[in-house]
Design a protein around this nucleic acid. Structure first.
Lengths: 187, 187
DNA sequence: TTGACGAAACCGTCCAATTGGTATGTTATG
DNA sequence: CATAACATACCAATTGGACGGTTTCGTCAA
């Protein structure tokens, strides 16, 4: 009857927890496994509690995707701050963010998997499209060269490969590729 | 009581129809919309009929993915037959198959979308992994250079970009990129 | 040629479990 | 004490799938 919700209230933590569980479910068991029951259950939160934070399942997914975009933006901006050369800076930041996936601690890999899972939902795909267009317009002055576009394409390819575990290559080859890509952004 | 199943029996056609409908649903409405009811309904086939061809939902998805891999293999092989140079031939075929997405008639684009949707299902992702490994071993003699790996990565990036509509670029830039990629496979 | 016959290709119904969501609590916190 | 942060109970709809029936089809003996 009344054993559970005597615990301390930590709305921000719970909200974050819910998003993380949803991410893990999506990456481990696929999109069809992301149900309200599953998410709330694995979070130790009641479904009512879940629906208090996210009024509907769509809202949950949108919030999750938005949180992923924020992470991406943060990773890019961090890399850009450490980059003195304006020309191609965004592209290098983007590349860096895509490469970072491989080196992140194990749990973080989930977030990238989720990104892909979420990209298959048509509504969220539109949101992604908007994100790309915004950045593309923002950095038109420094990152609109053909080579920069190529690098960003390759970064996507690497991201995909790391994600799926395909196209395995050894570290030295990977490093050569990265060096070459960075070089391309500076031309 | 008995109006429907008096029609002519065309097992292969119905089977194909079911796969196509499942593909369309997945690409248009996302993975969560691919339900047995939805597929059978939109196919004009009863759920019993659907479950006759594919004993379970997983079987349906696996069959769909297998059919996609067959298409990919066919596209690659076709491109390889028209390619006289052995060295890097598979990589060029793979590149060609990825590029083909853009030029295909509108309906065919769905198949690529489905591929991505299906790749988010962990079980099918494993199947994809196996496919890559098989090819990687088969063509180890002609397509194991670093540059070839790079080209295949970039091909994936282009595939992703065409799919999501991101990274828009004009035709001349695209052509330059392609030329460069093909050049890389020949080194 | 026929026609019996088993198998394959369907259909329609039913079901337990799960789904997303509502409504109404109860508790903590400012 | 007002409001936010939860929980519990419930609901109609949908889910994957089991089941038993009906129709067509290939085949092979008569």
């Amino acid at each position: 009857m009344s054993t559970a919700h005597h615990r301390k209230k930590q709305p921000l933590f719970v909200r974050q927890q819910l998003l993380e569980v949803a991410a893990r479910l999506a990456s481990e068991k696929g999109m069809t496994a992301v149900t309200l029951d599953a998410v709330s259950g694995a979070s130790g939160v009641s479904k009512g509690g879940l629906l208090h934070h996210f009024p509907s399942k769509n809202m949950l997914l949108e919030a999750l995707f938005e949180s992923l975009l924020e992470r991406l933006d943060a990773a890019i901006e961090e890399a850009m701050r450490a980059d003195p050369l304006p020309h191609g800076r965004f592209t290098r930041g983007y590349l860096h963010a895509c490469l970072a996936l491989r080196d992140q601690p194990e749990g973080t890999k989930d977030w990238a998997q989720v990104t892909m899972v979420l990209l298959t939902e048509p509504q969220l795909r539109q949101r992604w499209h908007a994100w790309v267009r915004e950045r593309s317009e923002e950095y038109v002055g420094t990152d609109s060269s053909v080579d920069a576009a190529i690098v960003r394409l390759a970064a996507d390819g690497i991201w995909l490969a790391d994600l799926l575990g395909s196209h395995e290559m050894d570290e030295s080859a990977r490093q050569k590729l990265i060096d070459r890509l960075i070089e391309l952004t500076q031309l």
